[in-house]
Amino acid sequence: MEYFTISLLNGTVYGLLLFMVSAGLTLIFGMMGVLNFAHTSFYMLGAYFAYTLQKYISFWPSIILATVLAGGGGIVVERYFLRRVHRYGHAHELLLTFGLSYIIAELIKLFYGNYPTNYRVPESLHFSAFQIFGTDYPVYRLLMGGISLGMFLLVYLLLSRTRVGIVVRSAIYRPRMAEALGHNVPLVFMGVFGVGAALAGLAGAVAGAFYTTNPNMALELGVIVFVVVVVGGLGSLEGAMLASLIIGLSSSFAVGIDLSLVDLFAFFGAGEWAQGLGGLMELKVSSLSATIPFALMLIILLVRPSGLLGEKG
């Protein structure tokens, strides 16, 4: 029970963090069809911006400013880079973002060096929220979850309840028609890309203090955010939320399960036979925690390619 509760809490918070990073990506992906490989670079930029600003201004303002700066970076990328190659097709857009992610990572190394920075949670926020089974639960973890939830609500309401949201959704669904109706679709694209980057930047600014801010943080999240987006359904915010939670929880729980296929077969009385096969059979679930998301992604793609909550496909 103890393990279950703690894993549930941890998995949920980790899932919420994943959502923060992938929310922007799913919007961009759904709308522009761009597999944006530079997306986690904005996550990293957010962390480094916040780290730098924190030396001059206090914690919260620096987080907000870092978010804005990351968003600005996103706008620049869309306006001056992506838009230029848009006419050459998606593959070129994708490869362009790839090149940008190289450049951003190397520039970070140039300016901040190869090592983790000393970006930490401020002392005023470094205390435990409550005790659970004798273990402290850090308040910052709850804070991250809260920010993510708040962000989800805000973006969701923005998209579904406002006029801007309607235009954005129509631009996602039928860009040409929206343009024909007199909406400035390139501006919408730029806006969405900027907001998406800003969301990733916010995630980085908040999570960078809790985890580590280092030049590899973009790489570490690199592929998993695509899993979230695909599993949730391209362009679906709710889907991204659901998928993030599933992946957060599954990786949190898998860690504690030391069972393998051998044990499954042993349950049916064929344990020794399975043991003899070795290889795949002996792999423990706990050592597969990194594999599970990709297996999930594969199954979704084959069974329900539009994703859990996606519409298009």
Binding site: F81, R84, Y88, G99, Y102, I103, A105, E106
Partner: peptide, 16 residues
């Protein structure tokens, strides 16, 4: 790697 990234970006933008 930085130069490599710059090459990628330039090729995609100006030499599709």
């Amino acid at each position: 790697l930085l130069y490599k990234g710059i090459i990628f970006v330039l090729v995609m933008m100006f030499m599709p």
